[in-house]
Simulated scan of single mutants.
Amino acid sequence: MKKIDTEEFIFNGDGKFSIAQTKTKIKDFYEDKEDYEISLSQLNKQLDELQSMMYAHNRYGLLVIFQAMDAAGKDGTLKAVFSGVNPQGLKCHSFKRPTETELEHDFLWRTVLQLPERGSITVFNRSYYEEVLVVKVHPEIVTQNQRLPAELTDDLDKLWKNRYEDITNLETYLHRNGIRVVKFFLNVSKEEQAERLIERIQDPTKNWKFDEQDVKERGFWKEYQQAYEDLINATSTHKCPWYVIPADDKKNMRLIVAKVLAQELKKLNMQYPEASDERHEELKKLIKIIQE
């Protein structure tokens, strides 16, 4: 595998992020399919080892957030990147349309319930960022369905600004409590999305993935692109940056995501718990008992 410079994909709030100037396709980091599979397998092994150490260390937690347009490849990326990672310390949660119970609470409530425990990795397939994406593109959701007081929905620009601030504050709070947040935006082109949606229709094994709503939402492409640009500019920080990953090539995307996660886990001050001298002596005695 060619060297992946993850700094190329990071946005930490320095400077202005422009989605129009961000690539959806770059040169491959693999030579061929075999090279890709070997490289991904090596990264899978690294992630498993690092996750095992984090589980034993039991001080940090990791929240991994995936956001993307429809058909960008979130599900396949999750499956490929976390293949082989011990499920004992890994949880995945997919957020869909809010339930009646969830609508009775604040917009962060349902995601806060799913935050990772210490020693574990939790993956959000979509997240609280939907509240400044689909809800922003379709503001009638917040004005008609979210049961907010009228004075909070009179000025929608202020409402979005407040939500960006609330999200940033939550992520800062998590970081201060040992829960690291890694955020990925899988950046697919409109042309590539079209091919993948058509494939879902034509391939009987992928029909179940196709939702007519995806085609309707495609009609709001420009609005979603602007919403992503706005949220990345508003919520990128040095502690919790965004990684914007070119998503037109799925193999490349998965390698980059896996590399980023391995690097982020290596940054944590983790080690396996060490036994005291007294404990070592006790263990030696137990070995003798077992051997009798």
Rank of each mutant, 00 (worst) to 15 (best):
W109T: 10
P139Y: 07
V142K: 01
E131H: 05
C92Q: 14
I121T: 08
Q144E: 12
R126G: 11
V123Q: 00
G89R: 01
K91P: 01
R126E: 11
S127R: 03
V137Q: 01
Q146D: 14
P98Q: 01
Q144R: 12
R147T: 14
P98I: 08
V135W: 00
L90T: 02
N125T: 03
T143M: 05
T122V: 10
T101S: 13
V142M: 11
S127D: 11
V123C: 03
E100A: 12
R118E: 04
S120A: 06
L113F: 07
L103Q: 07
L152T: 12
Q114R: 15
P116C: 08
V132H: 00
E131R: 08
Q88E: 11
S94Q: 08
R110A: 09
L108T: 06
T101Q: 14
S94N: 10
L103V: 12
I121L: 02
T153D: 04
R147D: 14
V142F: 04
Y129I: 08
R97E: 15
E151S: 12
Y129F: 14
S127Q: 02
L148E: 10
E130D: 15
E117W: 01
K96V: 07
L113A: 14
V142A: 15
T111Q: 15
E102C: 09
F124T: 10
L148R: 10
K96P: 03
R97K: 15
R97G: 08
T143E: 01
P98M: 05
L90Y: 06
G89E: 08
L148F: 11
V137N: 05
L113V: 14
Y128S: 02
E104G: 13
P139D: 09
R110Y: 01
L115K: 04
T143H: 01
E100N: 12
V132K: 02
V123L: 07
R97S: 14
E117M: 05
E117C: 10
E130L: 07
G89F: 06
T99W: 06
Y129E: 10
E104F: 10
H105L: 11
S127Y: 01
F95K: 02
K91E: 08
T122E: 02
L115N: 03
I141H: 04
I141D: 02
G89L: 06
E102S: 11
S120N: 05
S127E: 04
W109S: 12
K96N: 11
H138C: 09
H93A: 11
T143G: 08
Y128V: 09
C92P: 07
L103N: 09
H93M: 09
R147G: 14
P116E: 05
L90P: 07
R118M: 08
V132F: 00
P149W: 01
S127F: 02
E130T: 02
Q144H: 12
K136G: 05
V137S: 02
T153S: 00
N125M: 09
A150S: 13
L108S: 07
E100P: 00
E130C: 03
P116A: 11
C92F: 10
T143V: 10
R110D: 06
Y129G: 06
W109H: 06
P116R: 01
